[in-house]
Design a binder for these strands. Structure first.
Lengths: 129, 129
DNA sequence: CAGAATCCCCCAAGATACTG
DNA sequence: CAGTATCTTGGGGGATTCTG
């Protein structure tokens, strides 16, 4: 039974990189989504982010922030004080992504029990005795 | 300027695994999303999928399908014929994910030009001469 | 305080080959 | 046809150290 087509056919699975894949890859990396969500609660400074996301290393924090800034999803502001104070926050573009992300997170949260149950069933039935 | 909070605060960033992270990880892996989208156009058999997604190896196809099946997002049906014919398709759970995915893909597609432009600007301004 | 630079390890995933 | 099995490699990402 063919399903009513809810999706635009993907931009031809070109040899190169698909723009959609491009975005999904970023959301799929270990920290981007978490940082975006964190920043959606308000702009924060570097070390504050270290505290908000305890498991992240400074290395990955800096790198991920840079990627997000490069993509125009967050802004970066350096206050010319000593010691320097650098803040990060969502741009309008980044902000426009949040509802989409919220939908996704909501789906995940809502169906997490079903997924957990499916896993249990699968793991129970898959072994050969 | 704090942003109106569009997101449920994440389930405590527990030491263990966050259910949301769990789902995002799967969507972020290299093939899951592509396979889900492909299957949303209708159930397909194993070799048909290798043709629909030319770049995937049989190894990764089998493995990804198994993960998706384990999570209850797709079903797997073995027709007892020789040679065996195995079909895959979306479950209701998988189906319920598609609109969410479609929204995400739509966002990516819609804002891809803005992202590309942001990257160009960033790359132009970041170097130290 | 906010990073950049290095080193290093581990495993996701490609290539290849074999099987019920 | 629909997969497993084995081998191998690239690079994601942690720990640590250095700087303006």
């Amino acid at each position: 039974m063919p399903v009513p087509d809810p999706l635009p056919s993907l931009p031809p699975t070109k040899q190169g990189t698909c723009p959609v894949r491009d975005v999904l890859d970023r959301l799929g990396d270990k920290w981007s989504t978490l940082l975006l969500v964190t920043l959606s609660h308000g702009a924060q400074r570097f070390n504050a982010l270290t505290r908000s996301v305890p498991d992240i290393s400074r290395r990955m924090l800096a790198e991920t922030l840079r990627q997000l800034e490069r993509d125009g999803l967050i802004w970066r502001e350096v206050a010319p004080s000593t010691p320097p104070a650098v803040s990060y926050g969502l741009t309008p573009l980044g902000l426009s992504l949040m509802p989409v992300l919220a939908t996704l997170i909501h789906w995940a949260d809502r169906h997490q029990p079903a997924i957990a149950e499916a896993r249990v069933r699968f793991d129970a039935g898959a072994r050969k005795p």
